[in-house]
Design a protein around this nucleic acid. Sequence first.
DNA 1: AAGATTCTTGACAGACAGAGTCGAGTATGT
DNA 2: ACATACTCGACTCTGTCTGTCAAGAATCTT
Lengths: 154, 154
Amino acid sequence: MYISTRGRYAVRAMLDIALSTDDKPVSLRAISDRQNLPISYLEQIFNRLKRVGLVNSIRGVHGGYHLGKPANEITVGSIIKVLEGPIRLSKCNEPVANRPTCIGPNDCVAKVMWERLEHQIDELLEGISLEDLVRESESLGRQGVTKKYEESVS
Amino acid sequence: MYISTRGRYAVRAMLDIALSTDDKPVSLRAISDRQNLPISYLEQIFNRLKRVGLVNSIRGVHGGYHLGKPANEITVGSIIKVLEGPIRLSKCNEPVANRPTCIGPNDCVAKVMWERLEHQIDELLEGISLEDLVRESESLGRQGVTKKYEESVS
DNA sequence: AAGATTCTTGACAGACAGAGTCGAGTATGT
DNA sequence: ACATACTCGACTCTGTCTGTCAAGAATCTT
């Protein structure tokens, strides 16, 4: 039920870019430093993000990445789905361990239910844009949030 | 993002019991046959279901399991959570690979978002009871559903 | 032109969780 | 007695996830 680190890191990295105020491209190195994420892992992630146009890349010194679309058009769902494939709760129709799935009648009832849930979760994820997160980030204020977090953890 | 087979099998098995018309306990063997699920795996699953009272067991010949509560009080969410723990999308606060999580400011924004989504998904799952599925199963009709499924797959 | 940055790509490895099995045991009905 | 069924815990296997590494190509700075 977890969302993989790939997907979550991607959201954080994209948000990092979205939060950068100037127009300069944001390098993986900078993201890696700010977010404390392994740079080589980010490379892998950004390859995929680039391939689908969620980011544009600029090579060379002072290169980096830009958002490929305005922040309000980039949803959390779209980022997640690039890195994890479509939202799926069950593996109906995919035989598992030589055992055909979706055999009995109530398996089908369950299948319909899973698909309905998948759709609902998809809508939840598609309903949140990077812009929403940027706004939230600004309204909370950086220092404040960090402090609160540190207190709650320690 | 998948729900594990344990969780999904559990829902199917519980629905199987809920669909049984008479009061006789339903044996794992019967469930295994009808649902095409490995019986030894079901044993594992039902151990957990029993421990939290979602089912009652009757030993010996003609033994088996009953629902531990009325079908309308058993939600899909409660079943899933017995087998997979609470609904969680991120692992914030759990250090991964020696790397402290939740460091940067927008990690916290993301964290808040994940928690909100977890809560929303939880509500979706808690909103579906076994009774709902029983009703759905009856209204669709067993044969009809099976046919439809077979057509859509082939 | 040389060198430093930075993206590009694919192969690879270790750890871990998920899926399922197995066996020994206990309780109960016939 | 014997067959049926639940009880419990240990175990294995497989695949995915996480992350690393290395070689290369493009671009900027000096």
